[in-house]
């Protein structure tokens, strides 16, 4: 189940960039994936992980 707010691509890229160096890599990959899909005409690749194992564990 997704959060009820619409996660917009533009805003998500900004959160990555605003996060600094590590985030830039994420933003770059998101941007590259978009460019690749435009060039090849294929849709963006889906994440292969299954529904049940995708929760994050706590960091403490």
């Amino acid at each position: 189940m997704f959060s009820y707010l619409d996660a917009q691509t533009g805003s998500m890229i900004v959160t990555a960039i605003a996060g600094g160096f590590a985030g830039l890599a994420v933003a770059f990959k998101m941007g590259m994936a978009r460019i690749r899909s435009k060039v090849t005409g294929k849709p963006m690749p889906a994440n292969e992980s299954s529904e049940d194992d995708e929760y994050e564990s706590s960091h403490d």
């Binding site: 997704f2 996660a7 917009q8 691509t9 533009g10 998500m12 959160t15 990555a16 605003a18 996060g19 600094g20 590590a22 985030g23 890599a25 994420v26 933003a27 770059f28 990959k29 998101m30 994936a33 978009r34 963006m44 690749p45 889906a46 994440n47 992980s49 995708e54 994050e56 960091h59």
Partner: peptide, 24 residues
């Protein structure tokens, strides 16, 4: 604005994680 990307999957695939968000 006209993106039809599955944003959640795209961010996950690009490696978005809690550390990046915490830094933001």
């Amino acid at each position: 604005a006209d993106s039809n990307t599955d944003v959640k999957k795209a961010t996950a695939k690009a490696g978005m994680n809690a550390q990046v968000l915490d830094a933001t």
